[in-house]
């Protein structure tokens, strides 16, 4: 038989509806028979009722927007860190390199980063891709022959995860002009950035970091990308 003091300890859980089911009947029976414990019960009901007086904390205005903005900027920062070696492209910007070229390069770069496999192999491929892309960019700037229209302009569609079968890095090996056709084939396959179908399959848009710190979101023009690679190929 429990004492009143023991029952008193169980009352808050009982009132809150979280008491052990084995205790519930006993507690109910006891407070029905014990006036002091009934008084305690009524006091506890009142005390737990204060929780209902605690008004809902109201979030500061614009909380959701700030969360999304902050997440986007953190992603951008990580992307910048990942593309650290490419951010030294001051020269292209000084020369007025078109955003179209940079955008197309960014698409390839981002697509390469996103689709590459994890682990050491991924890192190795990523570095190789970055170097090849850097060479492509330098060539494009030097020759000033490239003018790729971004046919679909700026868009904000989400970047979708490519299917596993598309996880490959077509530019991981050193670029050699004689192997152009191989790259052409590779690009048609793994990255799905080329061809007549403009849906771009796995890649809808991409953020491109320019060396002046600004960021543009571009939807790749497949024709533009081909033109870039074609220009590169002729130049070599």
């Amino acid at each position: 038989m429990r004492s009143c003091e023991e029952f008193e300890k169980l009352l808050p859980a009982y009132v809150a509806g979280v008491a052990d089911s084995a205790d519930v009947a006993e507690i109910g029976e006891h407070i029905g028979d014990c006036e002091p414990c009934m008084n305690d019960f009524q006091r506890v009901v009142k005390e737990l009722g204060t929780l209902k007086s605690w008004r809902d904390p109201v979030p500061p205005e614009g909380l959701s927007a700030r969360i999304l903005e902050k997440l986007a900027s953190e992603e951008e920062r990580r992307r910048r860190e990942a593309l650290g070696e490419e951010t030294a492209w001051g020269e292209p910007v000084q020369r007025g390199l078109s955003w179209a070229v940079m955008g197309a390069l960014g698409v390839v770069m981002l697509a390469t980063l996103v689709t590459a496999q994890s682990g050491a192999r991924y890192d190795q491929q990523r570095r190789a891709c970055a170097e090849n892309l850097r060479q492509l960019g330098q060539f494009a700037v030097k020759e000033r022959k490239f003018s790729a229209p971004l046919e679909r302009g700026l868009r904000s569609d989400p970047l979708k995860e490519p299917a596993d079968s598309l996880r490959a890095c077509p530019l991981a090996e050193p670029l050699k002009p004689k192997e152009w056709s191989n790259y052409k084939l590779d690009l048609r396959g793994p990255l799905y950035l080329a061809g007549d179908d403009r849906s771009n399959h796995g890649f809808v848009d991409a953020n491109m970091l320019l060396s002046d710190g600004s960021v543009i979101t571009v939807t790749p023009s497949q024709a533009g990308l081909w033109e870039l690679l074609d220009t590169y190929s002729r130049g070599r």
């Binding site: 300890k9 169980l10 808050p12 859980a13 009132v15 809150a16 979280v18 008491a19 052990d20 506890v44 005390e47 737990l48 204060t50 929780l51």
Partner: peptide, 17 residues
Amino acid sequence: VAALLGASYLSFVNRLE
């Protein structure tokens, strides 16, 4: 969780008082 809840409601009442 059941034990934590039992303890938390009792502790709450005591601290409130």
